[in-house]
C-alpha cells in the first residue's frame, strides 16, 4: 500500500487528510494522481493543480518520481511558513 497525505487548504478542499492506495500498477506520482482522480473526479480542481508540491518519504520530488508499496506520499499546497 501507498500512504497518501494531504495538507492545509488541499486537505480542507478534498475533505480528506489521508488515503491508502494499492500500489499495484502504479509506477510514479503522475499515475498515483491519475488513479486518485479516477476514484474521485471531484478532486480534479484541487489535486490537479500544477502548483502543488509533492513529497515521497518526506523529500520534495517531481511528478515523474517513482513510488513503491510502503512509500509515504504527500500532496501539499505551496508552503507559506517563515
Amino acid at each position: 500500500m501507498i500512504t497518501v497525505l494531504f495538507f492545509a487548504q488541499l486537505r480542507d478542499q478534498l475533505g480528506c487528510e489521508s488515503v491508502s492506495v494499492n500500489a499495484e500498477g502504479i509506477r510514479n506520482l503522475a499515475e498515483l494522481r491519475a488513479h486518485l482522480l479516477e476514484e474521485h473526479p471531484d478532486w480534479q480542481p484541487y489535486l490537479g493543480l500544477e502548483s502543488l508540491l509533492l513529497a515521497v518519504n518526506q523529500t520534495l520530488v517531481k511528478l515523474d518520481h517513482v513510488v513503491n508499496s510502503g512509500d509515504e506520499v504527500a500532496f501539499m499546497p505551496p508552503v507559506t511558513g517563515g
Binding site: A8, A55, M76, T80, G81
Partner: peptide, 14 residues
C-alpha cells in the same frame, strides 16, 4: 536559509 525555508519547508499559515 530564510528564502529556502519560505519556499521549501512544509509550513502553512492560516
Amino acid at each position: 536559509i530564510m528564502d529556502y525555508l519560505k519556499t521549501r519547508a512544509p509550513f502553512w499559515k492560516k
